Amino acid sequence: MFLQDCAMAHDLSATDVLRGTCRWLLRAGVNPLAEVPLSGGRRADILGVDAAGRLTLVEIKISLADLRGDRKWPDYLDHCDRFFWAVPAGLPTGDLNTPAFRPEQTGLIVADRFDAEAVREAPWRPLNPARRKAITLALARRAAHRWLGLVDPESALLGYD
């Protein structure tokens, strides 16, 4: 089991949680992309798409202060078919079981640097098809642009719309 040392939570960064969570998503058949801009000026920590075209959004929180101070997260529910919180192993998760964090609509992933585990599955809530298409196209375009930037860094000078 990857959660061997829960006392390490304070040593884990958002990048660590991102890495472990992305590995879990890949095993679950979801291709993730990090730091994805959304409409309304929001940004998803992770947005991924599965083979059926369903969108999974993950919000990473590495401290209780960060979690408790986030008032914008309900806006993310309009950009995905399911929503997960991802936290480092060892972070207390009691707040995520309260009505303010809508546990009936959100899943919970506990992660470390190497792996993750869904301790509460997120329910699927189908998006409006037109909205899903717009978000999926934007995700695909962003992923393609990032890939091109890896193989041709000068292409970034050409911009992204």
Rank of each mutant, 00 (worst) to 15 (best):
A28E: 12
D16A: 12
R141E: 12
P103C: 04
R102I: 03
P129N: 10
V36Q: 07
A140D: 09
P92V: 01
R42W: 10
L25K: 00
I62D: 01
Q4L: 10
R146S: 11
A118P: 10
P103G: 06
A100V: 08
A138Q: 13
G29S: 04
C6D: 12
R132W: 08
Q4M: 08
D16W: 08
A116V: 02
L127N: 07
L47T: 02
K61P: 11
G69W: 11
L18K: 06
R132I: 11
E59H: 08
A140P: 00
G107L: 04
F83T: 06
A144F: 03
V30K: 02
G149H: 09
S13H: 09
L55N: 04
D78H: 14
T56H: 08
P88W: 06
D95S: 11
L150K: 12
N97A: 15
R23D: 13
W24H: 14
A144P: 00
D115K: 00
V151I: 15
V119R: 08
A28T: 02
R142E: 14
G90I: 02
H79F: 15
C6N: 11
R125N: 09
D50L: 06
V110C: 09
A100R: 15
L67S: 04
A34H: 08
N128T: 10
L67F: 08
R71D: 14
A89I: 03
D161M: 04
D78Q: 14
D115G: 13
G159I: 06
A14S: 12
A143L: 11
E59N: 14
Y76C: 05
F2M: 04
R23V: 10
G40L: 09
M8W: 03
L26S: 07
I62F: 01
R42G: 13
L12F: 13
W124F: 10
H145N: 14
C80F: 05
A116R: 01
D66S: 12
L47G: 03
R42H: 13
G107V: 06
Y76S: 02
I135W: 00
V30P: 06
P123Y: 10
R68S: 12
A51T: 14
D161K: 03
D5Q: 08
A51P: 05
K61A: 07
P123E: 09
R113A: 15
G48N: 01
L127C: 10
A134C: 02
R141F: 02
L55M: 09
P37Y: 07
I46A: 07
L18E: 14
R71Q: 12
D11Y: 05
D50E: 07
Q105T: 10
